[in-house]
Design a protein around this nucleic acid. Structure first.
Lengths: 332, 332
DNA sequence: TTGAAAGCGGTACCAT
DNA sequence: ATGGTACCGCTTTCAA
């Protein structure tokens, strides 16, 4: 059932059917009703590929993330998908994995599929050496990065000032007399580095020395972190607070503290369900995906509409206080 | 840059270019190389919409889930997407929400987009009264349901025998002298009902009475469950073990038990990260998404390839034992 | 092995 | 307001 059939059955030309299809005002009400009735009756569905060919768009946006089974990316994708849908775009999901070859492959794949734009979720998409694949993509369609920063033409970024968040937490801990703060992290993505910088910055502002034995790298696994931190405690490394780059990591550390019967503030990051599920419940920095994602999609809409849009927007995170830590901020 | 340009530049007809594009064997090696060289040189990318029109497929399948920010669906989508990709299919993601209107809308949307098939994740897609929208979709393209059951022509199901899992747990608990087992659930989807049936079945087999005050409905929220179970404990309702339809719910219950200083077995469901993050770590039933999802996608591949495929496959779940409960099964 | 030309199902311009 | 028709970029059949 195609436009020719509809035309025949309604006694009009395909041009008119097309007009009805696209809500053109220059069709008499009578004709429109007649055509619509026929469409309705035969259950006509316009061919999306043909329309794609004609319009040169199928109103699809590619969403890339390294791993959607990660609770943080899942939330971001959820928010992005829903907002895209509101704006009339479908979401083509690509889980790229972490290696650069995978990322390149999917970027090209999406370009070949002729998506209208791409949204990269997470700072894992910024490679340390070579971002030419992103540059290449951005030459053809707008590229939006959520929670990551790549400064190239055609690339737009929506991110959260994670560095200050960490620095602020260090300050708060210091004010509470916690001078030896363990920082546990997993990756050195842009975001990962920013947080570490924030940690160092915070120490500096507080007049505390940076001790490299308090900066710990781990694999993102509850068990591994648990073991690492326990070993640290047992080996006598001295610290009086823990900050983590991720809720999952904070929880691993928390378990070690519990096992060794130690009590001290613990702060996680991302404010995921995990924070709420933890016992004691975990205080965690919220990086505001709830506002970041919709904002990013709206920006994208504006870009596609040819409007002028800032290349980078930054919003402030906020600490969600639960049982493991309360800041003492005086009206902060 | 289109097929005509390539044809012109390589001194052949568009038909030959098309053959090269599709790897037809009836092109001389020399011609093929020449054409490929030109394509390479100009960075030619064939237009996906035009190919879609010609082939009548863009090798896309629609993935529907009610909410991808839910950790369980996120994992399923992750597995499905990756396997689809392996089979050369793109994933069009649709998060439908829970109301039936949303689901209908997205089903139609996907049909209009001419996807090759649809994968519905979760039993929330089986409506109690009217599944005509699924029936309609299945008339046009294969519909695969993961962890749900809808028996209609063209609908295929891959699911896990959750009922027995719950029944087995009841049996184990009974053998450990736990006769008053609280069952806490959130939804009455197909899966939700199956679990409750398993609970009742387990009680019956163990010769235990069903007590309606031990079957508790809650909202899926740690806080709510915490409060509900605490109130239960305080009001003197007597039980000596807890089973939940979801890890999150089990964790809420666990928190209540901790608060009231009660110790008893707790069993969750879905074996998510939450189980590992919980303190104490939560024993949980794994519904085997890791095998269910790839299997389902392979089935779909076979269906699309015209092969004969069972309409329903069922696999057995398995209990993952952690701190909150250990089964005593003698070689079960 | 290769090319010409007729689709695929729409869009959009130009007449009327 | 409506119709005729070229065109979007590719696939595929039929001849050569």
């Amino acid at each position: 059932m195609n436009i020719y059939d509809i035309a025949k059955r309604s006694g009009v030309s395909i041009a008119t059917v097309s007009r009805v299809l696209n809500g053109s005002p220059s069709v008499s009400e009578e004709t429109r009703d007649r055509v619509l009735a026929v469409m309705q009756k035969v259950g006509y569905i316009p061919n999306a590929f043909a329309r794609g060919l004609g319009f040169n768009t199928m109103r699809m946006v590619g969403i890339l993330c390294t791993d959607i089974s990660d609770i943080f990316y899942a939330k971001a994708v959820s928010l992005v998908e829903s907002k895209l849908r509101q704006n009339g775009f479908d979401s083509l999901l690509c889980c790229t994995g972490n290696d650069i070859e995978g990322k390149k492959k999917y970027l090209n794949l999406l370009l070949a599929k002729h998506v209208d734009a791409m949204i990269l979720i997470g700072s894992a998409f910024r490679e340390s050496i070579d971002n030419s694949h992103i540059e290449k993509a951005a030459k053809q369609i707008p590229v939006m990065i959520i929670n990551g920063l790549v400064e190239l033409p055609g690339v737009y970024c929506a991110l959260c000032d994670e560095r200050s968040a960490v620095a602020n937490n260090v300050a708060s801990l210091h004010r509470q007399g916690r001078d030896r703060i363990l920082y546990v992290y997993d990756t050195l993505t842009y975001s990962g580095c920013e947080k570490i910088e924030g940690y160092k910055e915070g120490l500096k502002c507080a007049g505390l020395p940076f001790r490299k034995e308090l900066l710990i790298h781990v694999k993102k696994s509850v068990k591994d972190v648990h073991k690492t931190v326990r070993d640290l405690l047992r080996s006598g490394v001295n610290f009086s607070a823990v900050m983590a780059s991720e809720d999952l990591i904070a929880i691993g550390a928390l378990k070690a503290l519990q096992e060794e019967d130690r009590d001290m503030p613990v702060v996680g990051f991302n404010n995921s369900v995990l924070a709420e599920c933890s016992s004691p419940s975990l205080s965690s920095v919220d990086n505001m995906l709830d506002t970041l994602c919709p904002t990013a999609v709206d920006m994208l809409g504006n870009i596609l509409a040819g409007k002028n849009v800032p290349k980078k927007i930054i919003i402030s995170p906020k600490l969600v206080e639960r049982e493991t830590f309360r800041a003492d901020d005086r009206g902060g």
